[in-house]
């Protein structure tokens, strides 16, 4: 079996203990995916697995066998920036830049969850089919991605802008 990472087939590691995170960083040198805790508490290692956000530190590489992994390096189409990447720069949604790839990957999946009508803790009416976009919804849904530099306002503004442009 093999894993598809950003559209390219790569081999699974020989050692079954290797996490998807370590396989990406140490095996494939895709170091855009970051390590902040190795225990699922910070979100820095967020990648997309078949389009869903997962914590790659809590995912064994072998669990990705036969599946499609998208990392920050593969988020944009072509050589340019993904709209979220551009919006993060515009709104200064980071300082040190370390949690940033995880924030952006999580945001891209989160916008899809919103569009699919998946409710959250702050959704007032769980039965409604369309979730109303709000900063509060973004904040709640991004709360698994920690930022210690305190770029929260910029991150939320960046995501809100992209979500609004998408909807328009």
């Amino acid at each position: 079996m093999a894993i598809r990472v950003n559209g390219t087939e790569v081999a699974s590691p020989d050692d079954a203990r290797v996490s998807l995170l370590d396989h990406l960083r140490e095996g494939l040198h895709l170091t855009g995916t970051k390590v902040g805790c190795n225990q699922g508490a910070c979100g820095a290692c967020t990648v997309l697995l078949d389009g869903q956000r997962v914590l790659s530190c809590l995912t064994l590489a072998v669990q990705a066998d036969g599946r499609e992994v998208t990392t920050i390096e593969g988020l944009a189409e072509g050589d340019g920036l993904h709209p979220l990447q551009g919006a993060f720069i515009e709104h200064d949604g980071f300082q040190c830049g370390y949690c940033t790839p995880g924030q952006i990957c999580a945001a891209s999946a989160m916008l899809r969850e919103l569009a699919e009508g998946v409710p959250s803790y702050v959704t007032a009416d769980l039965a409604q089919e369309r979730i109303l976009l709000s900063r509060e919804e973004i904040r709640e849904r991004m709360s698994g991605n920690l930022c210690r530099c305190g770029a929260h306002n910029g991150i939320v503004d960046a995501i809100f802008q992209v979500a609004t442009e998408k909807a328009a």
Partner: peptide, 11 residues
């Protein structure tokens, strides 16, 4: 910024 958002800033 462009390096950081693309995951290309090397730590």
């Amino acid at each position: 910024g462009p390096l950081k958002v693309a995951g290309k800033a090397r730590f």
